[in-house]
Structures are given as structure tokens and as C-alpha cells.
Amino acid sequence: MKKWVWFLIGLVSLALTLIVSIFAQNYNLIIKISGTIGVISILISGIFLGAFVNGDKQRANYFSETKEHRKTRTIISINILLVGLPHIFASIIFLII
């Protein structure tokens, strides 16, 4: 799928979060739900990229996998981050307001 589709999935899930918080009349739900989805997407994206390992393990992973596998991991990581990006922005905006 295209990258904008993943971003659109994030926007739709954010709209659902906004609708739920409006019906519940609890605007803190926006921060809690969107913040949770945003943080989880960052963590999962970092795990797929291998960003939370030290240099020795990252170097070993780099040389032990194929180029196609590395490309697939990177694409999955970017897609997961694109789903969580609208949630991150919304939780920051509602946290400031």
C-alpha cells in the first residue's frame, strides 16, 4: 500500500478517538488514547528498525540479514509510524490546550 494510506488509517482512527471522547464528554480521553497509540507506534517502529540495541548488535544484524529483509523491516517501521503520527500530534495539541 501507499504511504498516504497508512497516514489516512491513522487519521481515521484519530477521528474515532475524537468521536468517542466527545460522546463520553471526557476530553482527557483524547490525550490518553492518542498518546498511548502514539507512544506504542514509536516503540514498535523503533523495535522493527533495531533502534534500541547497541552498536555491536546493530552491526551484527546488518551483516546477518539480506537487503530485501532490511528493506521490508524499514517499510513496516515507517508504515507503523505513519499510523501513529496523527495521534502524536493530536495528543501534543490537546496537551498544550
Rank of each mutant, 00 (worst) to 15 (best):
G38S: 12
I31C: 00
I47W: 12
K57D: 04
Y27I: 09
K57E: 11
I93E: 05
I97M: 07
V5Y: 13
T72S: 13
V5G: 01
I33K: 03
N28P: 01
I42D: 01
L18G: 12
S64Y: 08
I19S: 09
S13D: 05
F7C: 08
S21C: 09
H87T: 06
L8E: 00
G46I: 02
N26R: 12
Y62G: 00
I33A: 10
F52W: 13
K2S: 15
K32T: 14
F63E: 14
L16F: 13
L82V: 11
A90N: 09
A90D: 05
L8G: 05
I75A: 13
S41V: 03
Q25I: 03
S91E: 07
I19H: 05
I97T: 08
I42N: 04
F89G: 08
A15T: 14
T17D: 08
I19T: 10
L82Y: 13
F48H: 05
S77Q: 10
I93R: 03
L29S: 08
Y27D: 07
L16T: 12
V12M: 11
L43G: 06
S45D: 02
G10H: 02
K57N: 07
I22V: 13
K32P: 00
I80V: 15
G10Y: 02
S91R: 00
I93P: 01
I76H: 09
I40H: 02
L95H: 07
V5D: 04
I22G: 06
L8S: 12
Q25A: 12
S41T: 15
I76S: 07
K2A: 14
L16K: 04
L43T: 14
I9A: 10
I9D: 01
S21K: 04
S21V: 09
R70K: 15
A51K: 15
N26C: 05
Q25M: 07
A15Y: 14
I31W: 02
G46K: 02
G10K: 02
E65W: 05
S21I: 07
F7I: 12
I40R: 02
V20T: 10
N54S: 13
V12E: 03
A90K: 03
N28Y: 11
I96S: 11
F48A: 07
L8D: 00
A60W: 11
I75Y: 10
I97K: 09
S77C: 09
I19F: 14
S77V: 08
F94C: 05
I42P: 00
F94D: 04
Y62F: 15
K32R: 10
I93W: 09
I76G: 00
F48T: 02
I33P: 02
L49H: 12
F23V: 11
S34Y: 02
T74V: 09
I78M: 11
L49E: 12
T36C: 06
A90L: 08
I42S: 08
Q25E: 15
Y62N: 13
K32L: 14
I19P: 00
M1F: 09
A60H: 11
I75T: 15
G10W: 01
I30N: 06
L8F: 14
V5A: 08
R59A: 15
I31E: 06
T36F: 13
I42H: 04
L95T: 13
M1Q: 07
A24H: 06
G10Q: 03
H87A: 06
A90I: 11
